[in-house]
Lab assay of single mutants.
Amino acid sequence: DELVREILGRCTCPDQFPMIKVSEGKYRVGDSSLLIFVRVLRSHVMVRVGGGWDTLEHYLDKHDPCRC
């Protein structure tokens, strides 16, 4: 939770990309009902993408309208 909030807090946009914790390891992202699975691996916040894992920073770079 703290690492996810820290990464989201780096955004300086007036309207921050919403990530709402639904349950342990599950977050709702953006304005959709899309759920992502998150885990911490060796101090990196990882997001389940397709059949693999990606860093939360890279995921936000691709999906946050402010960072695109």
Rank of each mutant, 00 (worst) to 15 (best):
Glu2Asp: 15
Glu2Lys: 13
Leu3Pro: 04
Arg5Ser: 14
Arg5Gln: 14
Glu6Leu: 06
Glu6Asp: 11
Glu6Ser: 09
Glu6Cys: 04
Glu6Phe: 04
Ile7Arg: 02
Ile7Cys: 07
Ile7Leu: 13
Leu8Gln: 08
Gly9Ile: 05
Gly9Cys: 05
Gly9Pro: 02
Arg10Val: 03
Arg10Gln: 11
Arg10Met: 07
Arg10Ala: 08
Cys11Glu: 00
Cys11Phe: 02
Thr12Ser: 10
Thr12Trp: 02
Thr12Gly: 04
Cys13His: 01
Pro14Asp: 12
Pro14Cys: 06
Pro14Glu: 12
Asp15Lys: 13
Asp15Asn: 14
Gln16Leu: 07
Gln16Asp: 01
Phe17Pro: 04
Phe17Ser: 01
Pro18Tyr: 04
Pro18Leu: 06
Pro18His: 09
Pro18Phe: 04
Met19Phe: 15
Met19Glu: 00
Met19Cys: 04
Met19Tyr: 07
Met19Ala: 05
Ile20Gly: 06
Ile20Arg: 13
Lys21Phe: 04
Lys21Cys: 05
Val22Asn: 02
Val22Phe: 06
Ser23Cys: 12
Ser23Ile: 02
Glu24Ala: 11
Gly25Lys: 03
Gly25Met: 06
Gly25Phe: 07
Gly25Asn: 11
Lys26Ala: 12
Tyr27Lys: 05
Tyr27Thr: 02
Tyr27Met: 05
Tyr27Gln: 01
Tyr27Ile: 08
Tyr27Leu: 02
Arg28Gly: 01
Val29Tyr: 06
Val29Ala: 08
Val29Gln: 06
Gly30Met: 06
Asp31Ser: 12
Ser32Ala: 12
Ser33Asn: 14
Ser33Gln: 14
Ser33Ile: 02
Ser33Gly: 14
Leu34Ile: 14
Leu35Tyr: 12
Leu35Lys: 09
Leu35Trp: 04
Phe37Arg: 15
Phe37Gln: 15
Val38Cys: 12
Arg39Ser: 10
Arg39Lys: 07
Arg39Thr: 12
Arg39Trp: 04
Val40Arg: 12
Val40Glu: 10
Val40Ser: 08
Val40Gln: 08
Leu41Asp: 13
Leu41Thr: 13
Leu41Gly: 08
Arg42His: 14
Arg42Ser: 10
Ser43Asp: 14
Ser43Thr: 13
His44Gln: 14
His44Ala: 13
His44Arg: 15
His44Thr: 14
Val45Ser: 01
Val45Arg: 02
Val45Met: 06
Met46Tyr: 14
Met46Gln: 11
Val47Met: 05
Val49Thr: 15
Val49Tyr: 12
Gly50Phe: 01
Gly51Thr: 13
Gly51Asp: 15
Gly51Lys: 14
Gly52Thr: 14
Gly52Arg: 13
Trp53Cys: 06
Asp54Tyr: 15
Thr55Glu: 05
Thr55Val: 03
Thr55Cys: 03
Leu56Cys: 01
Leu56Pro: 02
Leu56Gly: 05
Leu56Phe: 08
Leu56Arg: 01
Glu57Tyr: 02
Glu57Cys: 00
His58Gln: 08
His58Cys: 08
His58Met: 06
His58Ser: 14
Tyr59Thr: 02
Tyr59Ala: 01
Tyr59Ser: 05
Tyr59Ile: 00
Asp61Leu: 12
Asp61His: 09
Lys62Ala: 12
Lys62Asp: 09
Lys62Thr: 12
Lys62Phe: 09
Lys62His: 08
Lys62Leu: 13
His63Thr: 08
His63Arg: 10
Asp64Tyr: 01
Pro65Val: 01
Pro65Arg: 05
Pro65Phe: 00
Cys66Gly: 02
Cys66Gln: 05
Arg67Leu: 04
Cys68Ala: 15
Cys68Gly: 15
